[in-house]
């Protein structure tokens, strides 16, 4: 067998021409080919990783069954976002969806990214090609959002079957889940750029678990004294929970827009931080 041909035609001519036209300030960061990273992500999901995706889907379902249906029998009905009484399962279901979007996004952008960065050297391999660090970051954040999207669709399906949604507004829960995922994924990836060891990764559940338990997910925020309420309201998950809860019954107000805006803002902050930390994340 002869060595592979390296004929007179340059197979990279088109790519080089495209890269040559890129403005100088972004030439080293972004090659405009994040879709190749995304295509890789889908190929991996197709071949092996449905199991990982599925576990993330079942988690909120288990919570819903145990807390919503099981404990809900003891609780009975509680006042919904618009003051009308709703079943306890209906009350916590949207909160579980918001939490699931958060968990999925953080899992992808923190644990997965950290592992690929430090151990499997996946990004090292990617960056030996015509990709720039921003192509990798956009591709990986997109995959985190896709995970959030899948969870949202699956869980909303479960809620619909169980009769726990009562409004067409509930369909908006899907894009909102993606928005929540974007906020958490971008901030998560920026935080990951500071992480050096697996021990530091252990801190992540220490933040996420209390945020899940105390962000008025399982009971109304009014049980807290006022200073604690202010603290909870500063946390991102509370905004996700409130917004989801309002959409589930179609009670959409200015406050809903405010909650969405909160996630737009932290997404912008997160993406900016990731961009500034890209070199630390991917280059040495």
């Amino acid at each position: 067998m002869d060595a592979p041909s390296t004929g007179p035609t340059d197979v990279m001519a088109a790519t080089k021409e495209r890269l040559r036209r890129r403005p100088g300030w972004i030439a080293n960061l972004y090659a405009g080919n994040a879709r190749a990273v995304i295509a890789r992500g889908f190929r991996v999901i197709r071949s092996a990783n449905w199991g990982v995706v599925a576990t993330g889907f079942f988690e909120p379902v288990f919570y819903l069954l145990a807390m919503g249906v099981g404990m809900g029998a003891l609780v009975g009905s509680v006042p919904g976002p618009d003051g009308q009484p709703v079943s306890y399962a209906m009350y916590i279901a949207p909160a579980l969806l918001a939490t699931s979007a958060m968990n999925g996004a953080v899992y992808d952008s923190v644990n997965n990214v950290f592992f690929k960065m430090r151990y499997s050297k996946l990004y090292e391999g990617m960056l030996q090609t015509s990709l720039g660090p921003m192509d990798v970051a956009i591709g990986e954040i997109f995959m985190a959002l896709f995970r959030g999207f899948l969870y949202a669709v699956g869980f909303l399906g479960v809620l619909t079957v169980m009769g726990l949604v009562t409004s067409w507004w509930a369909l908006a829960m899907i894009p909102v889940a993606v928005l929540i995922a974007l906020g958490f994924a971008s901030v998560g990836m920026a935080v990951t750029s500071y992480m050096k060891s697996f021990q530091q990764l252990d801190l992540v559940p220490m933040v996420l678990l209390p945020m899940f338990l105390f962000s008025a997910t399982l009971y109304p925020i009014t049980v807290y004294p006022e200073p604690v309420q202010w603290f909870v309201m500063a946390m991102p998950l509370w905004h996700g929970v409130e917004l989801m809860r309002q959409l589930s019954v179609g009670y959409v107000t200015a406050a809903s827009a405010g909650h969405a805006l909160y996630f737009v803002v932290i997404s912008v902050i997160g993406i900016t931080a990731v961009t500034l930390r890209l070199r630390k994340l991917f280059l040495r």
Binding site: M12, T15, K16, L19, R20, G24, A27, N28, A31, K121, E124, G125, L127, Q128, T129, S130, L131, G132
Partner: peptide
């Protein structure tokens, strides 16, 4: 350093 993707278009890297 300034044209990483374009330089790497002509490189093969075996780390």
């Amino acid at each position: 350093e300034r044209h990483g993707p374009e330089v790497r278009a002509s490189l093969g890297v075996v780390p």
